[in-house]
């Protein structure tokens, strides 16, 4: 006789349910870490004022640089002033996303590997890549996202072309895709620390390269444009979303982004699994 199962309560061992539960667990994990981090950072409200000044100074100098450019010319490589404002807005938003979740988590992994405290991640009964990606949130860095949105809207209102619902959706999708690509690249670089330990200088290099996203990658010479697109996905993260709002995005480019994203995720996963297996725990 089989064990009695109450009506309506499915067998908890069914494979698709395990998967479902794991997904829920993943979401709850993200939510929980986010809440703890937010509560923690809300204690330090003066940090918000400092962040606000920092963000405004950075954005201000970017806008002055643009003003100097358009003091001399009406278009830069075919991009008008409002269009470049859109690029500046997206650049600031993506920078905010990087500072909010990507950089703090990846930085923590590098520290953990160096100090041998990465054990705490590996011994938990959840996926190590997921856990490593959601442990830290710098809430105040969202200031950049808000300021970037302001500049973005400012740019959009100056555009000759109108932005439709479809464009808006394409923008949201390409922004999410582009940010995910930045995450992938950063995680691959971070995984490098399983082999080489010191990877923070590569991170410096990325920050240097990221600045190039202030302008559409098409202004750069071919060698730089290609490396800014496929090696360091700034082209996908900043330029492509901007294109979707300025009527430049083609279906092809959208599909390339999607395809590249799938490949990048696969490579990232592969490198992460290989790398974390190499980790031997310096503390042990």
């Amino acid at each position: 006789m089989s064990a009695p199962v109450a009506d309506g309560v499915p067998d908890p061992g069914a494979p698709d349910l395990v998967l479902e539960r794991r997904r829920m667990q993943g979401l709850r994990l993200v939510g929980l870490h986010l809440r703890v981090n937010v509560m923690n950072e809300l204690q330090y409200r003066s940090n918000f004022a400092i962040q606000l000044i920092q963000s405004m100074v950075a954005l201000g100098t970017g806008l002055v640089a643009l003003a100097l450019v358009f003091d001399r010319t009406d278009t830069l490589d075919g991009w008008t002033r409002p269009q470049l404002l859109v690029v500046m807005g997206v650049f600031t938003i993506v920078g905010g996303i990087i500072g909010f979740v990507i950089e703090p988590n990846m930085g923590r992994v590098m520290t953990d590997v160096r100090q041998g405290t990465f054990d705490h991640v590996l011994t938990k009964p959840v996926d190590s890549q997921l856990l490593s990606s959601v442990r830290e949130f710098r809430v105040w860095r969202l200031t950049d996202v808000v300021l970037g949105l302001v500049v973005l809207v400012w740019g959009i209102t100056g555009l000759d072309t109108s932005v439709g619902v479809l464009d808006g959706l394409a923008f949201a999708a390409t922004l999410a895709g582009g940010s995910s690509l930045v995450y992938c690249l950063w995680l691959v670089v971070t995984s490098g620390s399983f082999w080489f330990v010191r990877m923070d200088h590569v991170q410096e290099l990325f920050f240097g390269l990221y600045r190039a996203g202030q302008y559409p990658v098409s202004v750069y010479p071919a060698w730089l444009r290609l490396s800014l697109t496929y090696l360091v996905p700034i082209g996908f993260a900043v330029t492509v979303p901007s294109e979707s709002l300025t009527g430049r995005l083609t279906w092809e480019r959208g599909l390339i982004t999607l395809g590249f994203l799938v490949i990048a995720f696969a490579i990232t996963r592969f490198v992460w699994v290989r790398g974390s297996r190499r980790y031997s725990g310096a503390s042990a």
């Binding site: 830069l76 590569v202 290099l205 390269l209 600045r211 190039a212 202004v219």
Partner: peptide
């Protein structure tokens, strides 16, 4: 790495 990362800044100004 540090120096190469730094070179990007003037390259941006130069290209523009």
């Amino acid at each position: 790495f540090y120096m190469v990362g730094m070179v990007i800044e003037p390259v941006i100004y130069l290209v523009v």
